[in-house]
Design a protein around this nucleic acid. Structure first.
Length: 499
RNA sequence: GUCCCCAUCGUCUAGCCCGGCCCAGGACACCGCCCUUUCACGGCGGCGACGCCGGUUCAAAUCCGGCUGGGGACGCCA
């Protein structure tokens, strides 16, 4: 019996195999077996995938991959007002970019309403839930009054023992929560956490319009999907006791919880837009590599001794919830830059070429055949922290300098420049250099012959070739550009001298 | 306000569970030197922390208590 269905078209058929999209396997009520490790990432589609969510997804994914478990994606779209298809797509796109492929799903809670209603009815029938006719306004007023008096603003239970049941009047359904004792759980990250039941009130499980609420749906879904470990942000710690009570009332086994500390901004406040980009896709667009973001994110809150660099395989192999810290961490863009630079330096030029293409296109460079982009990239890998920066630095290869750094050029007199350009152009055309090293050797020869020091030849040449003094090694530029183009640029610079 | 959680360099963290090897290690950032045809890369070195107060102990970053500080939750949001 299939309970959950897929409703939406996924942006990337390759990432979430079509077979799984059309036929999600999901059985009811096989909830007794906890032997299989099953985790899930359950974002609500009310915005893009932010770095906090991405880290939660990554930890879940890593945990599943480490133990050969199952990673499930579930879209929590019960808030039909704020949920959008656009957000669903953005989340899927972000996960695809990070390579967090799911084994089951994406499932949508809105496809599941009948199932939740069934459970609400069950609770009602068993006397574990009751109807409540209190108006939102009066609840709000009571909340404020409680706050003002320094009490915890919780539902006072007015309708708990209400005698008349005017079913034709608008009402919600509340869970009849235990009022005495405590609800505790052993969190994999934080240890034992206990809440006095007196702190918890009768939460609404079904709204006036009959739609189920978050805390209720989560429990039903996690139970029926046989989720064994709930790994989520620690802003959910306070929801956990309520959910545990629901599991117990419903007779479902309680999963193991692991609450991951939040990611904060530089001011130690919860990370938000004002701290800079928080969208995963924004990082892609700023020229970060997915492996860099993943590596950065995995080290935020988790560590493996002094190790800093983790390949995907190493992450999977070494990741362990036990080594996740209990305190929140501050998002540090500088370290992300360092990791990104590392992966750019060690990346395969051909792959980097594919990734760089869009950044060049946005700068008006669409034909990257000549000079060969991979060759260009190999001269830039040690000089760029992001693909955006690399694209900027790559520009001169495709757009010959229109003007030269005059200030730098002014350090040399024109006869000297002309002599250097002439000598280099001649020598370069004659010799058949095939490597940057040979090329550099050629310049040394020219220095010797002309009685010049290397900077006297190097700087003018760099300016002639790239327009500026900050560029890759000259031999590298010449090889990437091709001798013919290099000579042409030198001739052009020489001609410009007489203007 | 009430409840829950947290607390090592500016930041990410190791060490803490099972006290001594820690006058606390690594990384990012920053500073200096070296390398060098520019910019970078790289190498070497420097700066820099156990929040505070008590207690336990021969001995505490490590155990206990309090304080302070920070975060989170208190919705017919998720």
């Amino acid at each position: 019996m299939r309970i959950l269905q897929i409703r939406s078209v996924v942006s990337s058929p390759n990432y979430f195999p079509a077979a799984q999209i059309s036929r999600p396997t999901f059985n009811f009520p096989g909830v007794s077996s906890m032997s299989e490790l099953r985790v899930r990432f359950a974002p609500s589609p009310t915005g893009y995938l932010h770095v906090g969510g991405a880290r939660t997804a990554l930890f879940n994914w890593l945990y599943a991959r480490h133990f050969g478990g199952t990673f499930i994606l579930r879209i929590e779209d019960t808030d039909t007002e704020r949920s959008t298809q656009q957000s669903v797509d953005a989340i899927l796109q972000g996960m695809e970019w990070l390579g967090l492929d799911c084994d089951e799903g994406p499932f949508f809670q809105t496809d599941n309403f009948p199932l939740y209603k069934q459970h609400v009815q069950k609770l009602l029938d068993e006397g574990k839930a009751y109807r409540c006719w209190c108006r939102p306004e009066e609840l709000e007023a009571k909340r404020e009054a409680a706050m003002a008096e320094g009490r915890k603003p919780k539902y006072d239970g007015t309708c708990r023992r209400r005698q008349d049941q005017p079913l034709d009047q608008p009402h919600v359904i509340r869970f009849k929560a235990p009022q005495e004792g405590e609800t505790a759980f052993d969190d994999l990250i934080k240890g034992r956490i206990a809440f006095p039941n007196a702190e918890l009130d009768d939460l609404i499980i079904s709204r006036t319009d009959g739609t189920p609420t978050y805390n209720f749906c989560v429990v039903i879904d996690d139970a029926l999907m046989r989720i064994s470990h709930v790994i989520r942000g620690d802003d959910h710690v306070n929801n956990t006791p309520r959910q545990i009570q629901l599991y117990e009332a419903l007779g479902y086994p309680v999963p193991i919880f692991a609450h991951v500390p939040m990611i904060l901004g530089s001011d130690k406040a919860r990370l938000s837009k004002r701290h800079g980009a928080t969208s995963v896709i924004a990082y892609r667009d700023m020229g970060y590599l997915p492996e860099a973001l993943n590596n950065y994110l995995v080290r935020l809150g988790w560590s493996n001794g002094d190790d800093e660099i983790f390949s995907r395989e190493e992450m999977v192999q070494k990741f362990d919830i036990a080594n996740v810290g209990r305190s929140p961490s501050v998002f540090n863009p500088e370290k992300l830059n360092w990791l990104n630079a590392h992966y750019i330096k060690s990346g395969d030029p051909a792959r980097l070429a594919d990734l760089l293409q869009p950044h060049l296109a946005s700068r008006g460079v669409t034909d990257t055949a000549t000079p060969d982009l991979a060759g260009v990239i190999s001269t830039l890998q040690e000089r760029a922290q992001t693909l955006e920066e690399m694209a900027d630095r790559a520009l001169f290869y495709y757009q010959a300098p229109q003007n030269y750094d005059q200030a730098a050029l002014a350090k040399f007199d024109k006869p000297h420049l002309a002599a250097v350009f002439t000598a280099v152009a001649a020598k370069l055309s004659a010799a058949a250099v095939t490597t940057a090293a040979e090329c550099d050797a050629l310049f040394k020869e020219i220095c010797t012959e002309g009685g010049w020091k290397m900077p006297q030849v190097g700087q003018p040449l760099r300016i002639a070739l790239s327009g500026s003094t900050q560029a890759p090694g000259i031999g590298e530029i010449v090889m990437a550009l091709g001798v013919t183009e290099a000579v042409a640029r030198i001739e052009r610079a020489k001609a410009a001298l007489t203007d």
